[in-house]
Simulated assay, not measured.
Amino acid sequence: MQGTVYERRITELSLAEFLSYGPQREEGVAGKPLMRKTKDGKIVSWTVETDDSACTLKEAFEKVNPSIGFNIELKFDDHIVYQQDYLIHVLKAVLHVVLEYAKDRPIIFSSFQPDAALLVKNLQTCYPVRFHFGI
C-alpha cells in the first residue's frame, strides 16, 4: 500500500534486500526509500548531504584507501536476547571478511553488546576490542 511504512529490523533482511534500499549503483534505478524513526516516534525520510549506494564490508575494504583504519561497531538490537550460537555465527562471518580483506589496515572492534564484545575478543587475537557502556 502506497504511503505505508513497514518497520523491519536490519537483521531480518537478506543481503539483496539490504542493498535494494537507498541510492543504487545502476544509473536510473531507484532504490526503496530509507526512513527512520525520531526519538519522538515520528517517521521521516533518511536524508544525508551526499548519498551513495550501500556496500558490503568486503567492498569497503576494497574501495577505501588501505591506510585508513576501521572501527567496526558490532551492533545488536537491545531488545533481543541473542543465543551464543547465533552471536558466534554472525561474528565468525564478520571476522572471515576482516581476516581475508583488511590486510594490514588498522582495525578496532567495538560494541555496546557485552556478549558480542567478549566473543569477538575470544574468537581472534589480531585486533583490539572495545566495549562501550550504555547509559
Results as ranks from 00 to 15, higher is better:
residue 49 E to H: 13
residue 120 V to H: 00
residue 3 G to S: 06
residue 64 V to P: 05
residue 79 H to R: 05
residue 61 F to R: 00
residue 93 A to L: 05
residue 34 L to Y: 01
residue 89 H to Y: 14
residue 57 L to M: 12
residue 42 K to C: 06
residue 62 E to Y: 10
residue 93 A to K: 12
residue 20 S to T: 04
residue 79 H to N: 13
residue 31 G to T: 07
residue 21 Y to A: 02
residue 129 V to D: 10
residue 121 K to C: 07
residue 21 Y to H: 10
residue 4 T to A: 09
residue 33 P to A: 10
residue 76 F to D: 01
residue 119 L to H: 01
residue 42 K to I: 08
residue 79 H to S: 09
residue 105 R to W: 05
residue 125 T to M: 07
residue 119 L to W: 00
residue 125 T to C: 08
residue 53 S to H: 12
residue 61 F to C: 04
residue 65 N to I: 11
residue 135 I to N: 13
residue 10 I to D: 06
residue 19 L to R: 05
residue 31 G to H: 04
residue 113 Q to R: 00
residue 61 F to W: 03
residue 76 F to E: 02
residue 135 I to Y: 12
residue 19 L to C: 07
residue 113 Q to S: 02
residue 127 Y to D: 09
residue 110 S to C: 06
residue 126 C to V: 07
residue 34 L to H: 02
residue 112 F to S: 06
residue 99 L to K: 10
residue 36 R to E: 06
residue 66 P to W: 10
residue 10 I to C: 10
residue 57 L to Y: 07
residue 66 P to D: 15
residue 77 D to S: 12
residue 70 F to R: 00
residue 115 D to I: 11
residue 123 L to Q: 02
residue 118 L to G: 01
residue 96 H to G: 08
residue 35 M to L: 15
residue 9 R to D: 14
residue 6 Y to K: 08
residue 89 H to K: 14
residue 78 D to L: 11
residue 82 Y to G: 05
residue 114 P to M: 09
residue 129 V to G: 09
residue 19 L to H: 01
residue 60 A to S: 14
residue 5 V to C: 05
residue 115 D to T: 11
residue 121 K to I: 01
residue 88 I to V: 11
residue 130 R to P: 02
residue 65 N to V: 12
residue 134 G to I: 15
residue 107 I to R: 00
residue 128 P to I: 03
residue 134 G to C: 14
residue 39 K to Q: 08
residue 117 A to H: 01
residue 60 A to I: 11
residue 43 I to P: 01
residue 113 Q to Y: 03
residue 5 V to N: 09
residue 44 V to K: 04
residue 50 T to V: 13
residue 13 L to T: 07
residue 27 E to F: 07
residue 61 F to D: 01
residue 88 I to E: 07
residue 85 D to N: 15
residue 45 S to H: 12
residue 121 K to R: 13
residue 95 L to V: 11
residue 99 L to P: 03
residue 101 Y to A: 03
residue 3 G to L: 07
residue 115 D to E: 15
residue 6 Y to Q: 10
residue 14 S to M: 11
residue 12 E to Y: 02
residue 106 P to Y: 06
residue 45 S to M: 07
residue 63 K to C: 10
residue 72 I to D: 00
residue 115 D to M: 12
residue 74 L to W: 03
residue 19 L to M: 14
residue 135 I to F: 09
residue 18 F to C: 12
residue 60 A to C: 15
residue 62 E to P: 05
residue 123 L to N: 03
